[in-house]
Design a protein around this nucleic acid. Structure first.
Lengths: 210, 210
DNA sequence: TTCCTCAGTGAACATGCGTACACTGAAATT
DNA sequence: AATTTCAGTGTACGCATGTTCACTGAGGAA
């Protein structure tokens, strides 16, 4: 047998430990909520002594912010990939509802973190999530603005509609996160409801006059 | 001088202490979140020794449930009173938006508690809030079902629409709670947005076909 | 080869926590 | 008047926490 793995450089090793801490925090907070987990618990789960934590983050608060950043990075990547799905062009609403459920299931913990800490994290974490969601709404607004019925709206109205959409999606995402494993019936129900809600909102679009 | 106040009965006194504990918990959790406050902090703020806590609640979890119950009781009472406002009959949407902002401002801490713990409390607290919100949606659905455009809908569709409404109201309520004191401009903005969102949804109603 | 850098260690600390226990004294009951 | 009930007290405990400090030893630079 030959040793295949090279000795990792110092940077690499540091990066790995950092990842281990982030993952430990994400996992622990998925059951108890980020606010209630301790620096020592996170370190223990990451396989590291409490003092080593400080080599990577100054405080739990800073860890929280890093977690927000990483979660949204994952989510944005996934959703951009999903937008390339050819189905999405054919029927935006039906495809979006299915994509939503699929994407959330694939990244359950990231969504759970965002949904939970949005309302309850430390002030800094809350604000960071709020900002990211606003960004998300603005992105969607740009997409919406190209739709036939919407071209003539004021940009404020488009953002309003986008906000309605995103907030409803966040709610349905929360439900998918809470959903017990292996319940395709619940999954189907959530997808169906999301689809109908989006239809209802879109019907509002069509009748809107600024 | 004559002693005006009668000596309170044992029951009365117990009730007062219970209230003191509930208020202490509500106030403390408005800054740090219910999950992070300790039995000792609550007792201290209520002016009582930690052990006395157990005469009223078996655990912090039970306190949390009592807080959910009391908050929703307050909220339901206020909203039912608001429904008697004659303006509400004339123009449901515009009046509702204003009532929403006013009611939330009057009971800031109760709304803050519900909004925050909805996503992040202990499992028991979360489920209790979820259940109360479902009840609330059902109540609204009954009101909506009497509207002219909606009479013919299936009851599932009516609940769907009611859910959309309530969830959006919860979101706007969160904003009112976070709103800094003495900012009538922010208040006006939130009212205006809530109004338009509700209009957009109502337009969807009108175009809906089951 | 020699020296330096620095990610991770391990012991020690003060503090706040939940809960058990025996208690007090006034209101309620007899 | 005598007795019981029970909301609230005070002490004491074992435990987990955040942070400090001096340390080790392997990777990287000289």
């Amino acid at each position: 047998m030959v040793a295949v793995s090279e000795t990792p450089s110092r940077q690499e090793q540091k990066g790995r430990t950092r990842e281990a801490i982030l993952n430990a925090a994400l996992e622990l907070s998925s059951t108890h909520g980020f606010a209630q987990i301790s620096l020592r618990q996170v370190s223990r789960q990451a396989g590291v002594v409490p003092t080593a934590f400080y080599r990577h983050f100054e405080s739990m608060d800073e860890l929280g912010l890093a977690l927000v950043e990483r979660s949204f990075l994952t989510l944005r990547t996934m959703i951009r990939e999903a937008q390339r799905d050819p189905q999405v062009f054919e029927n935006i609403i039906d495809a979006s509802a299915e994509v939503l459920v699929r994407v959330v299931k694939q990244n359950r913990m990231h969504f759970a973190f965002v949904a939970r800490e949005r309302a309850s994290g430390s002030a800094a974490v809350r604000e960071a999530i709020q900002r990211e969601l606003e960004l998300f709404i603005s992105e969607l607004a740009v997409v919406l603005a190209r739709l036939p019925n919407i071209e003539t709206w004021s940009s404020e109205d488009v953002k309003l509609a986008a906000g309605l959409f995103v907030r409803n999606m966040v709610y349905r995402a929360e439900q998918v996160v809470q959903m017990p494993e292996g319940r395709p019936d619940r999954e189907e129900e959530i997808t169906r409801k999301a689809r109908r809600e989006m239809r209802l909102i879109v019907l509002g679009f069509e009748a809107w006059e600024s």
